[in-house]
Nucleic acid binder design. Structure first.
Lengths: 134, 134
DNA sequence: CTGACTGCAAACTCTTTGCAAACCA
DNA sequence: TGGTTTGCAAAGAGTTTGCAGTCAG
């Protein structure tokens, strides 16, 4: 039940730590591949999930997009571009007490929340302007 | 480009309207099957997506769960049980101006947001109490 | 030694798509 | 008729899982 130190696990954690923002499993897989070409994608998924269960990294689940992972100390929200599907950070303080405002909890135990904003990123705004095909 | 009135489309819209809460495509497919046994799942998906694009119904996208659909007039939020994965409505007023509080919009155009709370539903709390296997 | 971890491939879930036939206007 | 919609099956994306071999403690 306890962790073993494997090269793969260490590399994956390191890659996520060195990310500026977030990346999906595929991107992390590619980054690790450079140093450890034989790694399997299943191992990347297993390590990412293990690390996020242990709270060492954070998994951002966004519908319709692959899961993203990031190493962070401060919780924050994300926005998904409705056109290109990319995920960006949102510059808004995390509200730790949002669930306190729920009127009738119906016996639910609330453990947290995610907010996913929708919108159009600058790149896609340019494209839409040009192409008028939306 | 304009809609045709098909039996399938009418049945699907009716089923969603008659839902008390939300249901996923699979559940709607099963409901429609009772009256129209030959319907294909692809048709259900196509109609649900069409209806939600036209704003006649609303699609709730939740990471890790199948998309849910509902007929509603008032926007609201949802909570996903971390154990059974079911989706429930949350008793909290929708904040239409949440995106106004974003400090630096980085050129993004925000069009809306979803909040997905996490927690444990009453049923699963009972189970956890009993089984202690979480 | 022994259980945890790995690599590989296959399985899985949910959803979309290609295509010919059926259908509505 | 002519463009939509349907049913079917196959494809697709992302992720998980079964299994035998490998490795850390």
């Amino acid at each position: 039940m306890k962790n073993r130190n494997t090269i793969q696990g260490a590399l994956i954690l390191e890659k996520v730590k060195n990310l500026k923002g977030h990346a999906c499993a595929e991107e992390i897989y590619e980054a690790v591949t450079h140093e450890h070409p034989n790694i399997s994608k299943a191992t990347v998924y297993r390590n990412l999930n293990r690390l996020s269960e242990q709270g060492q990294i954070h998994k951002i689940e966004v519908p319709g997009s692959p899961d993203n992972f990031e190493f962070r100390t401060v919780l924050h929200y994300h926005v998904k571009c409705e056109r290109c599907g990319r995920i960006f950070d949102v510059d808004m303080p995390y509200n730790h007490h949002l669930e306190d405002h729920i009127a009738n909890k119906h016996g639910f135990i609330f453990t947290g929340h995610d907010i996913i904003f929708k919108g159009f990123c600058p790149d896609c705004q340019k494209d839409l302007h040009k192409k008028h095909n939306y």
